[in-house]
């Protein structure tokens, strides 16, 4: 009899504060497992900025920095430049990365910083109670787009992976989702590949992970997984936008 699935050492024993069914928990697990499987957990230094994942310094079982909203890629740059042999990652939400922190993520990629970013896109500001984010879909109702987001008022949702894939320093860019076991397995493979790009010193890597927000979407967890598939994936197509071989 073999245990084929158990709690990863990559996460601490702390129970997370995330809402029931929020897929942050799944993504945390994938990152924790990836670090353990690559043997880099004891060498890792993570950065989690403001957002639902602001407490991630209590969850990832490695040295952590809590960064100001939007600034994790800059903090990670400071860390990596001091400790080039450590594995450095950021774990950011869409409000953080695609709104206030756009300059930081673009320039971390532009410089080819040898860090890895996990970008959790749930099309909304979760921690602050469900406001519209740059990734909120057209027609999606939030507390700051009560009639549903419109193009005229606030433009089309921003596709960060496609945007970052145009930057040479971004050697690995992939968008994944964690709404089904199959997608979760693919997401883990992408995360491991992104981490390897850093470990092989090739440059900046980012995995955009489509994620749910049952509480602020106003749905049950299972409904949220379906909503993600029916609404987010069509607008944010899954797949790889860049990997090192192409870049060479």
């Amino acid at each position: 009899m073999a245990v084929i699935f158990e709690r990863t050492k990559g996460l601490t024993e702390v129970e997370t504060h995330y809402c029931p069914g929020c897929t942050h928990g799944i993504i945390h697990r994938l990152v924790g497992e990836a670090m353990v499987e690559l043997g880099i957990l004891d060498n890792a230094i993570g950065v989690a900025p403001v957002g639902c994942s602001v407490f991630a310094y209590e969850y990832f079982n490695c040295d952590m920095h809590e960064a100001a909203h939007g600034r994790a890629p800059a903090v990670a740059t400071g860390i990596k430049r001091v400790h080039p042999d450590n594995f450095v990652f950021t774990y950011q939400g869409d409000g953080d990365l695609a709104s206030i922190g756009t300059a930081e993520i673009v320039h971390a990629a532009h410089r080819g910083e040898k860090i890895s970013t996990i970008f959790v896109n749930n099309a909304i500001y979760g921690m602050t109670g469900g406001q519209m984010a740059p990734t909120t879909l057209i027609g999606q109702k939030t507390t700051t787009s009560p009639q549903g987001r419109t193009v005229e008022h606030s433009g089309m949702p921003i596709r960060m992976s496609e945007l970052l894939a145009t930057i040479d320093g971004a050697k690995f860019v992939e968008r994944v989702a964690v709404n089904t076991p199959g997608n979760i397995r693919k997401a883990k493979r992408a995360i491991i590949e992104a981490f390897k790009v850093q470990l092989e010193g090739k440059g900046f890597g980012i995995v955009e992970v489509l994620s749910t927000c049952p509480t602020n979407w106003g749905m049950t967890a299972p409904e949220s997984m379906k909503w993600l598939a029916d609404n987010m994936i069509p607008y944010y197509p899954l797949g790889n936008f860049r990997r090192p071989e192409e870049a060479e």
Binding site: M1, R7, T8, E15, G25, I26, R29, P181, I184
Partner: peptide, 20 residues
């Protein structure tokens, strides 16, 4: 059948799976 699908989607690592 020990497929671990349940553990895969559990956000809170509630489930441990064994296979014979």
């Amino acid at each position: 059948i020990g497929c671990a699908n349940c553990a895969m989607v559990c956000p809170d690592l509630v489930i441990t799976v064994e296979r014979f």
